[in-house]
Design a protein around this nucleic acid. Structure first.
Lengths: 336, 336
DNA sequence: CTTATCTTTGGAAACGTTTCCAATCCTATT
DNA sequence: AATAGGATTGGAAACGTTTCCAAAGATAAG
C-alpha cells in the first residue's frame, strides 16, 4: 500500500487538505479548527498510521531539519567519539544527521560536500581532511551554516571552528615529562598539513624552550598512522642519542611506537617513557596504561552543535573556540 | 543568493525547464537534444554552479537514494566498524546514509524508525536493541526493504538478516581452550534478550558437552558492559572452584574481566586464561595480547548492503546469512 | 434589518524536479 | 506537391506539504 497522504486522509475525513495539514501539524487551535473536525482527522490519521513526508515538507519550507556530518573515518576512536555525540546531540535538538565518511581523501570530501548541498541540509559540521579543498572554501564562502571541528584553517573566508587547545595540550605533555626529569624528548607528528598537528608541534617546541631544552628539539613523522609511529620509533632507537621519552601526537602513532618498543625488547616505562595525544578507554587496559592528553570530545561536539544551531537561527559572527585538554596521568612515564 | 534551479537556468539559456532537466540529468542524447542547446545549458549550469535539489527529485521520483542505518551507539568499536563500512559501501553504490543512534533504548529505536520512514529512505539496515519493538515489527511487516545486522529475531514477520555464526564462534573458543587442557571454563554473557548472546551461550554449552565437560558448564552475567565483566569475574574469583579460563562474550565484558584480574593481582595467562568475542586493533597492544573470536565485520557490512540493494531492486525472498568468525590466537591462553 | 465581526473551512499557489504528451520544424519519400 | 516520419523542444501534471487569501455561515451590534 502506498503510504497515506494528507489528501487521502482529507477524503476519508470529508474535509480539505488544508484542514488536515493544520490539525496534523499541531496548529489546530491557531486556526480555530473545531474539536469535532480535529478529532475526526486525528482518528483517521491514527488508523492509517500516517507518516508525513519530510521530503515534501522540506521542499515547501526551505528547511529540512537535517545536518550533514563530514568526517574522515568513523573507525578512528577519536572521530567515532565525535560522531557519536554529535549525532546524539543533534537528535535531541530535532535534527537528523547525514554522515559522510571522507576517508581522508580530497575527492571524497568534494563529493561529500556536493551531496550534502544537494540534500539541502540546514547546516554542516565538518572535520576536513588536512588540505583546504575547493568545495570547502566554497561552502565557507556561502551562506550555508558550517562549523569546523578539530582541524581548521586560518585563511579566508573565515569559518567558525571548535577544537582542542592543541598548543596547550602539547605543552602540558612536555612539561609533565620535564617535571619527571626527562631531557631527550622526541616528538612523532602526523600530517603537517593539518593545523592540529602544527599547533601540537608548536606547543612541543615552545615547551622544550621554556624548559631549557631547545637543544633537544626533534620532530619526526608525517602521517597520523600506526606505520608512521612504528617506523619513526625504530629509527629513533637506532640513532645516536637515544631519547628517554617519546611524545606521540595521536593514538595511532602511539600504537606504532608501542609495537616498535615491544619488538626491540624495551620496557615501558623502564627504558622509554611515553605520552600520547588522544585518550581512549583501552589505554587504561594496556600494560602499562598510557599517560595521555585527553581531548574534550563531548564538549567539542556539544559546542559545535550549539554553534551550528545558532548559525542556522541566523547568527552571523565567526566564532573560534579552543577547548582545554586534560592531562591523564597513568603508568607510561618513568620518573628519572 | 537563493540557489539556482532548473527554471532560472532555463531562463538564461532561453529554453524550457524540460530541456534543462533532460540535459542536466544526462539524458541529452536519449531525448536528442541538439549539441548547441546542450552545451549552452551546461555552460549556464557550470557558471551558476547549480546543485540539483534531491528533495524535489526524491519527491517526484518516489525514491531518494538514501538508506537509514539504525545502530546502538557508534562509540562501541564493533558497531563503529559496522557503521564505517556500511556507510562507505553505500556511498560507493550511490546511496547516502542517515545514521540514527539508538543508544540501546527502545524509545529511541521507535523514534528512529519513524524518522527514517518520514525521510522516505529507500531501505533500512538495523541493529535492533535486544527486544523486538513495535516499530521494528511494523517495518518488518511493511514492504520497505530492511536488513537486520548482528542481532536478529526468529519470530514473524520474518526479516532478512546477516550475522556472525555466533554458535560456531563460541564453540571454536571453547574447543581452543579445551585443546589447551582447560576444564573449568566459565562464560560471562551479555543481555540474554539478544539472539547473539543466546547463540553464543548455546555454542559454549554444546562445546563443553562435546568435550566431556558438561559438569563444568557455568554461565554468569546479563549485560554487554564493562561493569558486568568486572563484577562477574570478581565473583568467580571468590567462589569455591576457581575457573582456569574465562570466555567473555563481548569486548566490553572482556575489559571488565581484565580490570578485575589486575586488581586481584592475577596474571594473564599464568593464573587465568581469557578468550573474548569481538576483535579489536587494540587487543594486539594489550599485555598480553588477547586471543579472541573475530567477527567478520567487513563482510557482514558488505553482505548487508548488497542484500538491501537487491531488496530495493525488488527481490522479495527472506535471506538468512551466518558468516564464519575467525579464531585469532594471541597470548592470553596458557597451555596447561 | 442591515452591517460588522468572528469562527470555521476550502481553494490554490508554491517549493523543484521528471516525464508524458504534443507541437513545431525539417527532410525525405511517394 | 502532399504527406510521412524523424529531430528537437515545450507545456503541464504530478509528487506531498504549507500557507495566503478568501468564502461561508453564524453571531452580535447598531
Amino acid at each position: 500500500m502506498p503510504s497515506d497522504t494528507l489528501a487521502s486522509i482529507a477524503e476519508r475525513a470529508r474535509c480539505s487538505v488544508s484542514t488536515v495539514s493544520r490539525v496534523l501539524s499541531g496548529k489546530a487551535e491557531k486556526y480555530r479548527i473545531s474539536e469535532a473536525t480535529a478529532s475526526r482527522i486525528r482518528e483517521e490519521a491514527r488508523l492509517s498510521n500516517y507518516t508525513p513526508s519530510l521530503l515534501a515538507k522540506g521542499l515547501r519550507a526551505g528547511k529540512t531539519d537535517t545536518i550533514g556530518l563530514l568526517i574522515p573515518g568513523v573507525d578512528d576512536t577519536f572521530f567515532s567519539g565525535i560522531a557519536s555525540s554529535i549525532i546524539a546531540e543533534a537528535r535531541k535538538m530535532g535534527y537528523t544527521t547525514f554522515v559522510v565518511d571522507t576517508q581522508e581523501s580530497e575527492d571524497n570530501e568534494n563529493e561529500g560536500f556536493s551531496t550534502l548541498l544537494a540534500r539541502k541540509v540546514d547546516g554542516i559540521i565538518a572535520v576536513p581532511c588536512g588540505k583546504r579543498t575547493e568545495s570547502f572554501a566554497r561552502v565557507a564562502g556561502s551562506d550555508l551554516p558550517m562549523v569546523v571541528v578539530d582541524r581548521y584553517f586560518d585563511s579566508e573566508p573565515a569559518c567558525s571552528f571548535v577544537t582542542t587547545d592543541n598548543y596547550k595540550g602539547a605543552m602540558m605533555a612536555v612539561e609533565h615529562l620535564a617535571a619527571c626529569n626527562h631531557k631527550r624528548i622526541i616528538c612523532i607528528q602526523g600530517n603537517p598539513d593539518a593545523m592540529t598537528c602544527r599547533e601540537r608541534v608548536r606547543g612541543y617546541k615552545d615547551a622544550m624552550k621554556k624548559c631549557g631544552l631547545e637543544g633537544n628539539i626533534r620532530v619526526f613523522g608525517d602521517r597520523f598512522s600506526i606505520d608512521c609511529g612504528y617506523v619513526e620509533t625504530k629509527l629513533a632507537l637506532s640513532g645516536a642519542e637515544r631519547p628517554t621519552a617519546i611524545l606521540t601526537l595521536s593514538n595511532k602513532i602511539l600504537l606504532g611506537a608501542v609495537k616498535a618498543l615491544k619488538e626491540s625488547g624495551l620496557g615501558i616505562p623502564e627504558d622509554m617513557s611515553l605520552v600520547s595525544f588522544d585518550d581512549n578507554q583501552l589505554f587504561n587496559y594496556m600494560t602499562p596504561s598510557i599517560t595521555c592528553i585527553a581531548q574534550p570530545v563531548q564538549e567539542i561536539s556539544l559546542v559545535a552543535v550549539k554553534l551550528l544551531l545558532k548559525k542556522i537561527a541566523g547568527e552571523k559572527n565567526v566564532s573560534k573556540s579552543f577547548l582545554p585538554p586534560g592531562l591523564v596521568i597513568r603508568d607510561s612515564v618513568r620518573k628519572l
